[in-house]
Design a protein around this nucleic acid. Structure first.
Lengths: 334, 334
DNA sequence: AGGTTTTCTGAAAACCTTTTCAAATTACAT
DNA sequence: ATGTAATTTGAAAAGGTTTTCAGAAAACCT
């Protein structure tokens, strides 16, 4: 049986209060007893029971994390950043994979609540009304990572997607391209959908390329969807010399499609992605893309959640981190 | 303040014992009171406190998971499998990223222990002596995923790496290749190191290709290491027509190197990988590889840990799951 | 030495549940 | 109606810790 504070106390011939004090406020106990207790702890390999402490402190030092699709490499950096922040702030992370399924997400929230997590971070997925209402009901602190909620006052950290998309397309235009298409997320995706399309359209309009704002094909999240979308886009608009893919995975699907049709990148078509996932520089050709600071987003959003938990509020509600254009091999001057 | 069982009891005009019974053994309480209690629970949105229950049941229904490198896509499938198994068995997962750092790993073990996890799964990383001893000391149940411990009696689930590697190289030989090299993990990696090399060597010897068993370059885990290793291997052995890469990421590093040297795959050199990570079929060329059933490994190892926790032992100690050769585009007949 | 602070210590309450045990109530049999 | 068995209920203990409070011991001052 695991030793308890009682065992330590009797081993050291003191009361349990003294043992507790040695661990939580050592300066208040006399030198002599303190070393006896320390010895007893060492001898018995005592470790305090987290349930008992949780009962008193009413917190678990654990944070719940909702990941929409753990297989998507985009989340790797995010998780790593969260981990590191969690370590320095003394939290543990409980990660779960929602598959973007509402019921499943709600079930996890429920489970997190019962396990008394101190807070939750929702990554990437839109904050659906159901989620919002459930979180209100449970009164659990939470933040949004890599997404935000325009309609509610929820702390979030992400990038300026509209501006990022704008810069991506601007890069294409500055490189001499005029006939530009896009592979886009469904517009109801709060973050990756509408804003990235808006950035695309703004860059085109600014350059007087209005007729191309409708050169868009839609894909859900995965490589295969993008491959399919690419086939539709190129069938409708064979004249395109450049395409903005709303994610690196889309870019890879697109490039694979082009390759299968005997057209090469960047010789025939320039492709720019979004995210800069790790694979972006391993792919052939290496992907030109907009880098999201995923590590920092993860790191910051855990800090923010911590802030929310400890102080009850956050300094800045919607935090935007800087993105960056990375020029590699999948785009070229025309 | 969160409602407690007391609040429910007084709301329903019964004792707390009755409320508890309604939740844990409803058939023992009279219909009439039962509905009153249920109404009270609903009205107050009561949820039992996991700390208090943990104190009594001495378990948290939480499993700790050690992942060496969360950014490595290999682990994505593994985690997904674990998640799914955890859900059906009523567990939650606490995932952490060890960076293969011993101190960090030990610190996490410590933290898991304090949080009273019911068991731990170590993924992939070798079970170092320090880990083994610490786990003995803490007397926590644990299993190994995608690795095993030849020297200790620890439950594990993985594949037959030696045989997988053998089949990979056999495929190269059967396709007419004779001059075959390998990019290998350091041999002290219990699983990905020595056994995959042994499979490589066995296939070569069996085909009378003894002189090539030393055509090996070593890389740590990442793409960049493999790129570097490729340059060494090809510098020493420019005559190679095929290479067995001990992981898909190695294969990608190797192919990138070849591409940068103007040699293409599979036209000039055939490359076979190992793992079948998701990226393997997105890469250009699509990777021929040995598929590891990562999802199943994850799933099974959580089941196994559950078995170990509940019964105190496991049916089969070292479980091997089937692998499979997947032929795609990175290899061709010679 | 006597009184007053200060330092140190232990008993007990609190945190929230489950479960045992005994008491109270009901149902049943004669 | 009476005794017995079965059902239902609540009081209290247990689980392991932190913390308050009061008392004991030590230190200080005059």
């Amino acid at each position: 049986m695991k030793p308890t504070i009682r065992d330590v106390a009797s081993y050291a011939n003191v009361s349990i209060s003294t043992v507790s004090r040695v661990m939580n406020a050592p300066e208040t106990v006399a030198e002599e007893k303190r070393v006896k207790v320390l010895e007893a702890i060492e001898a018995l390999q005592y470790q305090p029971n987290a349930f008992a402490r949780g009962l008193i402190y009413k917190k678990s030092d654990t944070l719940g994390v909702m990941i929409p699709d753990i297989e998507n490499p985009y989340y790797a950096g995010l998780i790593r950043g969260m981990q590191d922040a969690a370590v320095v702030l003394g939290h543990s992370l409980m990660i779960c994979n929602t598959d973007r399924d509402k019921e499943r997400t709600l079930a996890y929230v429920q489970s997190f609540f019962e396990k008394q997590v101190d807070g939750i971070v929702f990554a990437s997925d839109s904050l659906h009304k159901e989620y919002y209402e459930e979180m209100q009901r449970l009164r659990l602190p939470y933040v949004l990572a890599s997404t935000n909620a325009p309609e509610y006052e929820i702390p979030s950290v992400d990038i300026d997607d509209e501006q990022g998309a704008y810069e991506a397309v601007k890069h294409l235009i500055d490189s001499g391209h005029r006939r530009i298409g896009m592979i886009c997320f469904p517009l109801d995706k709060t973050i990756s959908g509408q804003p990235r399309y808006d950035g695309f359209a703004r860059a085109l309009r600014e350059a007087g390329l209005n007729k191309f704002v409708s050169c868009v094909a839609y894909a859900e999240h995965r490589f295969e969807d993008a491959y399919e979308a690419a086939s539709q886009l190129l069938a409708r608009h064979p004249e395109l010399t450049a395409v903005f893919a709303a994610s690196d995975e889309f870019a890879m699907g697109l490039i694979s499609y082009l390759r299968d049709r005997g057209r090469s990148v960047p010789e025939h078509v320039s492709v720019i992605g979004f995210d800069n996932i790790r694979m972006a520089h391993m792919f052939i050709p290496k992907l030109t893309t907009i880098e999201q600071p995923t590590y920092d987003i993860g790191y910051r959003c855990v800090c923010k959640l911590h802030e929310l938990i400890t102080t009850g509020e956050v300094e800045v509600l919607r935090e935007k981190l800087p993105h960056r254009l990375i020029i590699r091999e999948s785009t070229r001057r025309r």
